[in-house]
Design a protein around this nucleic acid. Structure first.
Length: 351
DNA sequence: AAGACCTGCAACCGCTTCGTC
DNA sequence: CGACGAAGCGGTTGCAGGTCT
């Protein structure tokens, strides 16, 4: 089969020699790439334009980072992949100096295996069922040792949440998954354990019995970063009370934050001290959210004025609410509104 | 030592999207 | 509009180098 883009010429294939690289770099440095299809002739290369383009973009471009991926880059890839799937070019845009090809290769050769080893389906990011685990891990040489040191929160197509705790918790795996109608919990208090000064999460689905329009089935996620030992979370009406078990003082719980979301809205809660009643922040029916991070040092937001959820367009006016939470929010156009960590947010916002 | 097997990654192929006329 | 070429994209291939047997 010939190359339809340059079938008339004899075209070299395979790896590029240093001489070819030099020709291409020299030509593009002096003249820019212009039309890729004309490059081979102008640069004196027996390659097709497509091959030149690929070589430049993936290897010769001066702004490429190369080298091994950092842990932070890896985290970013996983987080963004969870939302976008195999859209490598989109994912690579979140990693300055990395190419889609590089990200794709890294995913296929490394991250995928890690996720499988941790018991997650790399396609859906959901926990694998036991029989899925068997069949998936049997087909790879991935480590069989699960990684206990990461939190994972996943949102499935049906808006179900899966909570996978770290081994800091006495209950190593807790999944509270709302069904289509959400789960109505019989009790309004959920107890869970966490160790001192360790960020942990609870995701709680509950029915709010308040009759106003803003009530209804919620899924809630709350951090308890500074709570020690056993914590209970009491929910009544729209408010959430979080007792601090260190001193039995319900009013001084620092850095507690989170957001509440049902299938149509996202509600923020303020951090610090007593939880405020949830405040609606994102009334877009198509929107979904993933949130919460063990750092709890982040994020925004007043989403009501946030039309296009891309970073570039994020409004930085003084009405924006910064809440000490973190996570990812995205709309049905797959635009990521915010990434975990206030530092990430600011970096992204300045792009 | 050598062949088989594995792995990572550069490059390719074919399809889709974009831009121009 | 639609046609057409260019560019973009993602799945896949193939190869070099490493590891295993």
């Amino acid at each position: 089969m010939g190359h339809h883009c340059c079938s008339k010429q004899k075209v070299k294939r395979g790896l590029w020699s240093p001489e070819e690289d030099e020709k291409l770099v020299t030509h593009i440095t002096l003249h820019g790439h212009g039309s890729w299809s004309s490059i081979p002739k102008l640069a004196g290369l027996q390659r097709c334009g497509k091959s030149c383009r690929l070589r430049w973009i993936n290897y010769l471009r001066p702004d490429l980072k190369r080298g091994t991926f950092t842990e932070e880059e890896e985290r970013t890839i996983v987080e963004v992949h969870r939302i976008l799937g195999n859209r490598w070019a989109q994912i690579a845009k979140h990693l300055p100096g990395r190419t889609d090809n590089e990200v794709k290769n890294f995913w296929n050769s490394c991250i995928k295996k890690k996720l499988l080893a941790q018991g997650f389906d790399p396609n859906t990011h959901n926990l694998l069922s036991s029989h899925q685990k068997k069949s998936k891990t049997n087909t790879s040489n991935a480590s069989k040792t699960p990684n206990h040191h990461h939190h994972h929160r996943f949102l499935s197509n049906s808006s179900s949440l899966v909570f996978s705790s770290s081994d800091d918790l006495n209950q190593p795996q807790t999944s509270i998954i709302p069904n289509n109608n959400d789960i109505e919990l019989q009790e309004s208090t959920i107890n869970f354990e966490c160790s001192n000064n360790t960020a942990n999460y609870a995701q709680i689905d509950y029915n709010n019995n308040n009759n106003n329009n803003n009530s209804g089935p919620f899924s809630a996620e709350f951090s308890t970063q500074f709570l020690a030992s056993s914590t209970s979370m009491n929910m009544s009406d729209n408010s959430i009370l979080l007792p601090n078990n260190n001193n039995n003082n319900n009013t001084e719980v620092s850095n507690l934050c989170g957001y509440v979301f049902d299938k149509t809205s996202i509600w923020s809660t303020t951090g610090g001290g007593m939880m405020e009643p949830p405040m609606q922040v994102l009334p877009q029916p198509q929107d979904e959210a993933i949130g919460g991070d063990q750092n709890f040092d982040a994020a925004l937001l007043n989403m009501l004025s946030f039309n296009n959820y891309g970073f570039e367009d994020y409004p930085t006016n003084t009405n924006d609410t910064i809440i000490p939470s973190s996570g990812i929010m995205y709309d049905d156009m797959d635009q990521i509104a915010w990434l975990q960590g206030i530092n990430n947010f600011h970096q992204s916002n300045s792009l």
